[in-house]
Nucleic acid binder design. Sequence first.
RNA 1: GCGGCCGUAGUGUAGCCUGGUUAUCACUUUAGCUUGCCAAGCUAGAGACUCGGGUUCAAAUCCCGACGGCCGCACCA
Length: 568
Amino acid sequence: MFMDPQEILSLCKRRGFLWPSFDIYGGMAGMYDFGPLGVALKNNIENHWRRLYVLQEGFMELSCPLVSPEPVFKASGHLDTFSDMYVECTKCGETYRADHLAKDLHENPATLDEVQLGKLLRENGVKCLSCKGDLTEPKRFNLMFKTMVGAGKAKPGYLRPETAQGMFVNFQQVYRLGREKLPVGAVQVGTSFRNEISPRQGLIRLREFHQMEAELFVHPDDKTWPRFGAVKHEKLLLVANSGETKEITLEQAVNDKVIVNEVLAYFMWLTYRFVLDVGLDPKKMRFRQHEKTEMAHYASDCWDLEAELGYGWVELVGVADRGCYDLSAHIKHSDADLTAFEKFDEPKEVEQEGVKVKFDVMGKMFKGDTKIVAEALSKMPLESLKGRESVPVQAGGRTHDVPAECFEVAMRKEKVTGRKFVPHVIEPAYGVDRIAYAALEHAYSKSEKEDYITLRLKGLVAPFKAGVFPLMAKDGLDGIASEIHASLSSAGMHTYYDDAGSIGRRYARMDEVGTPCCITVDYQTKDDGTVTVRDRDSSEQRRIKKENVVLAVTRLVSGAGLKALEGL
RNA sequence: GCGGCCGUAGUGUAGCCUGGUUAUCACUUUAGCUUGCCAAGCUAGAGACUCGGGUUCAAAUCCCGACGGCCGCACCA
């Protein structure tokens, strides 16, 4: 069925899921406010995700600042990647990457600023490739929001364009807390920012959005996963970049090298499980492998989980093997040791020639300079130290003459028990807003004849778990209903109490926001203590004892259906 | 950022071309009555011309700009 996103967004606005931000000031593209129902939906999605990643798979959840200092993004590559320069044709409006046009005019056009690049293009008479029109001066599009941290000599900072970097820069903490074993994983749920040129399509392309990202650090030679065996016979619909589309088991996909390794396959499966749990339609889901050209140069494999929506196929989740790229980049830029250590089976004896400083002799001679001279000395090539009476050492801006009795060069035996290596990263990255939207769209249904809208949300994600109504707001029915509402609330369930208008209208309101069931107190309740439970999707009812309401709602929310109320 | 279309209560709309009373209708919503299980009825309310400038005696209506929306192009680390 073709779905018009406008219809969904209209419902969302009407019923308090979400609305355009800053509306009274004319709004701002790419920003949405979540209303009470939207917040509940989003929280439910995020909390279920935590249940899988943190509780089930044992990832550690972090929460890092949204504003990050410049070096972080220098290292990650975002600063350079986001600073692409564009020129436009003044005649036909075509846009080009300025550095691409200058490719043959300069050995490395990416190093030029916009003024230099503009001059270069002008002097070489570069015109529009399609219509030969004049080009504008290069313009810089930076997709990160920039800000200043502190007053006076403020440092530039950026709003994070993804949550991932916070986990990479904290690798040491995560590795240590994981007791220095691999695999070890971190997750972060939170807001990210991208200053999109033209945000569009409702929640699909936002300037401020929510991500749930996981970074799993693994040994480069061991990309297996303990729970893989339990799911290896499960099937996924794969659209490979070879052009083939097939539904095959995880095991076969890994054996045939369709998916590059076991751990990636496992997290693709977990991703699929997750989106089914939150109510997405399996018939409208697929995994699409990135094209070789689309994939970041460092990634060895990347699959997008896509959902079919009114907008077409939309990426909800990206699952990538990023290799050692991220940690290596931060090692290079920060000098921090973001490596893991592996013990050899047998320690190795390694004989190595080295210089040993005799501090007792040297200290008397060099006094306060001893430390810096010794340091400089031990960094010098061994050959330049051998067989000399004294050695000139540069330290502290001077040349020190160090006599041979201050050190000796000798073979040293060292026991090497293992080696350091840079772990590889498996990254599942989820777009919360997109998933929330997909959950709404896949749950949306409208009866043909009377435009009766029902959101068939999974109980797990539904903002309200139940509606509670007195059939009439009198004769004590309202009091009993209030008590039931209170008992559900204290059991931790968000429920909606409503005693106004006809009962049908109240059911309809709840159906439209996806509430799985409604409890109605009627006159029979006063006689025998039973209430009716109405199921949203079938609109059928059962009577149960009122003291069993919490249990009944719990069962219905878990998707058990009315038959699970037998005996209550 | 470019091009096309568009912007009226919470939602969906009429009016705009051809400027002129108190801006149409439905749903929603509030209060009261009624109502004994699926958007019922009655009565009384509330609620809008996206913003700014221009033309005019007079602008929802015509013109310009901004903002916002949809579609296409480009972009999407």
